[in-house]
Structure formats: structure tokens, C-alpha cells
């Protein structure tokens, strides 16, 4: 393939999904703006925002990369079926995703104390991360697999899809479920 055609084929294939990612990012930004208002109630919330969003990318980006390589190598079929490799990878990303959410609450709390900043109670920060982490994990895994399988069957290269899918879903649902968790913990905790 000529250089120019190769260049445009990468550009054209990635651009639509990056524009979707942009839309998702802007929506997540609007949610973030309303989270900023709850900073007074739970000091330290803002510290957790980038870490929580980054973790969605870490865990499910790795899952997506693994699925893409598996599809390319013919190790897994592009279907929701009981395939040992697929099940193992999904279970592992569940454990990683929820486990790290708890860790984020803890290290944020420790960092704020160490810096001498005001911080919400440890169980409040961990509770918010746990609720947001569990809800986001379920949506991310189902959504990621559905989109990657569908894209693959229609002839899209999964390599170009995964990063943007993960960040878009992660941004939107990460922020929405974090806002939900903040409101929920705010109601439960007197």
C-alpha cells in the first residue's frame, strides 16, 4: 500500500471513534463540573477523579489489548461464549478493577494526610470508590466486549477501536457512577 493511502486509512479509521470519544469526554466533563460542587462535602474527591479514570483505562485497556491480540491470533472467537481464555481474562479484570478501586481510596486518604490536607473519612472515600468501581466494571466489560466483537466481525481492526472505546466508556460511566456513589454515600452517611 502506498504511504499516503496507508496514512489516510489509519486516519479515517481512527477519526470517527476519536470524535465519539471527544463527545463522551465533554459529557464526562459536564459531570465533573457538578462533582466539583460536592468537594466541600467530601474533601479529596477531586484527587481521586484522574486516578479512578486512569484505572479504568489501565484495567480494561489491558483486557481490550489482550482480546485484540487473541482475536488476531485466532485464540478466541469473537462471540460471548464459554471460552476458557475469555472467562479467565474477564475474571482477572474484574478482580483487578475492583481491587484497585479500594486501593485508590486508601492511597488518596494517606496522601492527603501526609500532605496535611483536609480529607473525608477513609470509609467514605473507599465506599465511594468501591460502589463506583463495581458498577463501572460491569458496564465496561460487557460494553467493551460487545463493541470489540461487533467491530471485529464487521472488519474493523480492534487495535484502532480499543483505546478510544475504553476511555469513552470509562469517562462517561466512570464519572456518572462516581457522581452516583458520591450522592449515595452522602445519603447513607449521616
Amino acid at each position: 500500500m502506498s504511504v499516503r493511502r496507508e496514512f489516510w486509512s489509519i486516519y479515517r479509521e481512527a477519526l470517527p471513534i476519536l470524535l465519539v470519544a471527544l463527545g463522551g469526554g465533554l459529557f464526562a466533563g459536564l459531570v465533573l463540573e457538578s462533582i466539583i460542587e460536592s468537594v466541600q462535602r467530601f474533601p479529596g474527591i477531586l484527587v481521586m477523579v484522574p486516578v479512578f479514570l486512569a484505572t479504568r483505562g489501565n484495567v480494561y485497556g489491558a483486557l481490550g489489548g489482550r482480546i485484540a491480540s487473541g482475536l488476531h491470533q485466532g485464540l478466541i472467537p469473537p462471540e460471548f461464549e464459554r471460552n476458557d481464555r475469555l472467562v479467565n481474562a474477564v475474571v482477572a479484570s474484574f478482580i483487578n478493577g475492583i481491587g484497585i478501586s479500594i486501593v485508590i481510596g486508601v492511597i488518596t486518604w494517606i496522601a492527603l494526610l501526609a500532605l496535611g490536607r483536609e480529607a473525608a473519612a477513609l470509609y467514605e472515600l473507599v465506599g465511594i470508590m468501591l460502589i463506583a468501581g463495581v458498577l463501572t466494571s460491569v458496564v465496561m466489560i460487557v460494553g467493551l466486549l460487545a463493541l470489540v466483537f461487533t467491530g471485529y466481525k464487521r472488519g474493523y481492526d480492534p487495535d484502532n477501536l480499543i483505546g478510544p472505546i475504553v476511555t469513552t466508556l470509562g469517562d462517561i460511566f466512570g464519572m456518572l457512577f462516581m457522581l452516583f456513589a458520591i450522592l449515595l454515600v452522602g445519603v447513607i452517611v449521616p
Binding site: 469526554g25 464526562a28 465533573l32 484522574p50 479514570l53 486512569a54 476511555t167 469517562d171
Partner: peptide, 8 residues
């Protein structure tokens, strides 16, 4: 509003 896109 720009933060998540900018970062991701």
C-alpha cells in the same frame, strides 16, 4: 468540562 478529554 475539558479536563477528561484533555487527560484521556
Amino acid at each position: 468540562v475539558m479536563v477528561p478529554t484533555m487527560v484521556d
